[in-house]
């Protein structure tokens, strides 16, 4: 585009601004990783006595790994709940009319936009009034409910690109709704569903504001970390965080490859206008 080249020089500060913003965004992450190898603890410049001790300590730390397992369990269950209700919700918003549809659309999205503390407290009161004991189950219900929004938005976006002719053909050829749903609708929404599942999974793994109020005896990983931060900080936290970061990066790369191979256009943001 010639127009863009023409004013490139006029905006000479823009690339520098971008560099500065990236530096700001990555400074804590780089610090985190570097100091996970620092023998002298979390602070102090320059880093000294590089060591793998913190990783060794981490691998021997049963409480952390128990909380990782709890988090994985919660995330898988939350993905299941959010998809089980979010996919039908997206279908309903796309192809059914019911009283209160406009309100429902906004309501589903609310937990994503509201500060987590409000949703967390409200659910806490609900469980208290219903005499439900707090445990991982209450966290799962909380995450599942809050993250239905993600499944709904992703799948709804997928449905807008879906060609309904295939579903019509399936119904005309004698398949019932159930068969059409599993053999035509779901496979066509595959990418949206996988994308939603990955997003819900990672959001749940990282969730703390809602879990903070719904926690029972067993900690999730963020709450375990929170507990330790209040007692004093060690590079063990850096070590576990670095491992999770690398793990997430691998997941992003795989997901990105998958999307590119399937020739899907980049979703700029569901958050967009």
């Amino acid at each position: 585009m010639s127009a863009c080249h023409r004013d490139f020089r006029a905006s000479g500060w823009l690339p520098w601004h971008a560099v500065a913003v990236f530096a700001f965004l990555y400074l804590p992450i780089v610090t985190l990783i570097v100091y996970s190898f620092n023998g002298q603890g979390v602070g102090g410049f320059p880093p000294r006595n590089l060591t793998l001790d913190w990783y060794r300590m981490l691998f021997a730390d049963d409480a952390i790994w128990q909380s990782v397992l709890n988090s994985l369990l919660v995330a898988v269950a939350a993905v299941t709940i959010a998809l089980a209700f979010g996919i039908p919700a997206a279908l309903a918003l796309d192809r059914a009319n019911f009283p209160g549809k406009a309100v429902f659309r906004r309501l589903v999205l609310l937990p994503l936009i509201l500060p987590g503390i409000i949703t967390g407290l409200s659910l806490l009161m609900l469980f208290r009034e219903a005499d439900v004991k707090l445990s991982l189950v209450t966290i799962i219900l909380g995450h599942g409910t809050a993250l239905i929004s993600v499944a709904t938005t992703e799948v709804f976006a997928g449905l807008q690109k879906l060609d309904r002719a295939q579903e019509e053909a399936s119904l005309d050829l004698g398949a019932n709704y159930w068969q059409t749903f599993w053999r035509v609708t779901i496979p066509n929404l595959r990418l949206s569903i996988i994308g939603a599942a990955l997003l819900i999974f990672t959001l749940s793994m990282d969730e703390i504001a809602v879990s903070f109020f719904l926690i029972g005896r067993d900690n999730t990983l963020p709450l375990e970390i929170w507990g330790r931060l209040r007692r004093g900080i060690t590079p063990e936290i850096n070590a576990i965080s670095s491992i999770i970061f690398v793990f997430s990066l691998v997941v992003i790369v795989i997901w990105y490859r998958l999307r590119v191979r399937e020739g899907q256009p980049e979703i700029a943001a569901e958050l967009g206008p």
């Binding site: 400074l27 992450i29 965080s241």
Partner: peptide, 16 residues
């Protein structure tokens, strides 16, 4: 950066 836990990034700033 969104994939690094919110809590962990806040903690990283604390160490900085």
């Amino acid at each position: 950066p969104l994939w690094v836990s919110y809590l962990v990034r806040a903690y990283a700033w604390k160490t900085i």
